[in-house]
Design a binder for these strands. Sequence first.
DNA 1: TAGATTGTTAATCGATTAACAATC
DNA 2: TAGATTGTTAATCGATTAACAATC
Lengths: 218, 218
Amino acid sequence: MSRKNQGQTLKHVLLERLMHYYSYLGQRGGEQGPETISSAQIAKFLNMDDTLVRKDLAAIGVRGHPRVGFRTQEVVAAIREVLGFNEAHKAIVVGAGRLGSALAAYSGFAKCGLFVVAALDNDPLKQGTILAGTVVQPMENLESVIRRHNVRLAILSVPVEPAQEIADRLVRAGIRAIWNFAPTAIVVPEGVIVRHEHIAVGLAELAYRLKHSPADNV
Amino acid sequence: MSRKNQGQTLKHVLLERLMHYYSYLGQRGGEQGPETISSAQIAKFLNMDDTLVRKDLAAIGVRGHPRVGFRTQEVVAAIREVLGFNEAHKAIVVGAGRLGSALAAYSGFAKCGLFVVAALDNDPLKQGTILAGTVVQPMENLESVIRRHNVRLAILSVPVEPAQEIADRLVRAGIRAIWNFAPTAIVVPEGVIVRHEHIAVGLAELAYRLKHSPADNV
DNA sequence: TAGATTGTTAATCGATTAACAATC
DNA sequence: TAGATTGTTAATCGATTAACAATC
């Protein structure tokens, strides 16, 4: 029952901004916070233009109120609806190394409707340990876990070498989307969603700014 | 000794694309890989327009060769130079939880000139353990470690609650840039660089696409 | 040479911002 | 009411793409 955003596909950058609004509003108090917020307040916090905030919110069907601003709850609800946070997504974490276990245990995902139902690892030492409320399972169980929990999303946090092979296995097992934290590109058939999370990308900006910052004249 | 990019500040999106070129070329073989590459090859892999690749490379002063393409080594060298990967950056990891230790141990940073020289945590159980080749230190040592190693960059991976306070301490101790993995905004004085790495942002795109993917008609 | 590929100008496209009327 | 804030059109700006001449 989407509001008014049928048809057009929302742009990547818009989705990101919506997520920033969402997390700002959450941080600001959510249910208990102020009941309304103006586009200017949001814009100021996120260092952007208030017109753009209004445009974005209009794009997902939220209407503001002159002199009052936007009702926080309406904004939050609309973003959740548009981003699909209302249908609880079950996910498995494949590869329970340091990063994988950090992701499995990350509590912020629940606010976005993401629930890690299982973690798997091929290291016998990790198997059987408790992570995110469940027991770490051997890789052999991959297919059965996916089937049993009807999982559509996999968080891939294995080393580079086995990444592609495991991705293939995930796809064969019916996984519909892969959130890839392995620092390598993986190839999947058309129709399967992949998002490559490239942590070092952030370093490009940091290193560049560090190099060019005024106080840098050694 | 930058090539020809004096004056203008490179845009965020350009920096990101440079990083993507860099990691593609690295993945493709670096030193041992093919000696040249065409803008069309890069563009195809990254799903973009080849003109944009040429524009980007021209912007950082790399010249291609008609009929031949770009010399891989020249491109790599120019990106390293522009992004500041040639001056080795020392970093500390503050908060050696799962995410922090994953970051401290991540081997991909070295290719970008980033070296983690120490990790700190206030958990006595973690103190003294080995991480990234060094001993995890108590938080009391923060200032002395920064001074001793002349560290300018801090990777912040502590819980939300103490994040701001620790950030303040980092700034007072002379840290010039903070790479913030705590899921909360932190405030720093002008002149200090902060990059907030917001992992859940990626989820916005994934959840949205999962919701709107064609095969989703349950 | 012919042809592949670059480099660059001009055209297009889309996103952001400015301006301001509408609203409560 | 007066004034704060939205909603929306028009203007601007910048980024991407198309076209094509230059080059080896």
